[in-house]
Simulated assay, not measured.
Amino acid sequence: MTKAGDDVEDIEIHLLLEALFRRYHYDFRHYAPASIKRRLKQARQQLGFHSFSALQDAVLHDAAMVPRLLNYLTVQVSEMFRDPGYFRAIREKVVPHLRTYPSLKVWIAGCSSGEELHSFAILFREEGLLDRTLFYATDINPGALEIAASGVYALDRIKAFTENHQMSGGKSSLSDYYTAAYGRAVFDKTLRSRVVFSDHSLVTDAVFAEAQLISCRNVLIYFDRPLQDRAVGLFRDSLVRKGFLGLGSKENLRFSGHACAFTEFVREEKIYQRREP
């Protein structure tokens, strides 16, 4: 495509994202440009539109198109106990501090289809903390939240989940937590008995709870720098003093305007602790 063609595409993308925000209040305008362009190209091709302008017209006039588009714009690639070293560090180094609280609130931000939520619920049950913990599982994609709330995953994914669970220091068999039938694994509903599933945007929404632990992994990498700062500011304001923040393996607070509010707690696993105010 020519440079002029690229310029036209960029204008179309800008207008499409603006339309999505104005019409439906989903704000992707400050996501990393290269990432959002790549996802929109995939959406345009898969949904059968010849241009971003045609996709914009469909989005503006057909609300049913929005959840289909969101499935391309939101990241839904995850697995249980992903990056087992992270969960081992939570278990061995963070949990001893969490035990000192009579009750706990944990925010899983950008929970997608719930693999990380179930990982934490299983870990907390194994550590005897589940019954005193309230989990907030948030995402901007209603379809992903529905999957998370159902706790149903394809059976062919369980082998990888099981290996991760073992490497993370699991104290039981993952099979203790699900039943298998018809090619699906259905996870025990009691794992979700103390979970609040909620639509929440790190782009536009405010702090809604005080938490001892926030896990938001592999979300900030899709934001531009000002939006990353906004999200980290929300986490700072949500955490109790000496509360914990876990980020993804490719994320850090090094260049954040809020870095001074945190100390590195487990550097290699990107786990931070809120400083004293």
Rank of each mutant, 00 (worst) to 15 (best):
A34Q: 15
A58Y: 08
G246C: 12
L60T: 11
L247S: 03
K41S: 13
G128I: 06
F21C: 00
V94A: 11
R39C: 00
L155V: 13
E79P: 00
A185R: 04
A211M: 11
G128N: 11
K41N: 12
A261C: 07
D199T: 13
I271F: 03
A63G: 12
L145Y: 13
A121I: 05
L220W: 08
A231P: 01
G248R: 01
G243M: 08
E115I: 11
R88Y: 06
E210A: 09
G233Y: 06
F223E: 07
L123D: 07
Q212L: 03
I122Y: 02
D237K: 08
L227Q: 09
Y136C: 11
L117M: 03
H258V: 12
Y26P: 01
P33K: 05
A144S: 10
R254V: 11
F52G: 11
I13H: 06
S150T: 08
Q56D: 12
N141T: 08
F135K: 07
V95I: 14
A148S: 03
S256H: 07
F87T: 06
Y31N: 00
A211Y: 07
Y153I: 14
D7Q: 10
A259L: 02
T179D: 06
G170D: 05
P96K: 05
V77K: 15
N141Q: 02
E276C: 10
D10M: 05
S198D: 14
L174R: 13
N71Y: 13
A63T: 13
Y26R: 07
R230C: 04
V186P: 08
S215H: 10
S150A: 13
V203H: 04
I221M: 05
I108S: 14
F265G: 01
L174Q: 09
L17N: 06
I90K: 10
H200R: 08
G257W: 09
S256G: 06
H200Y: 08
G128S: 12
H61M: 02
I108K: 07
G183D: 14
L213K: 05
I158R: 06
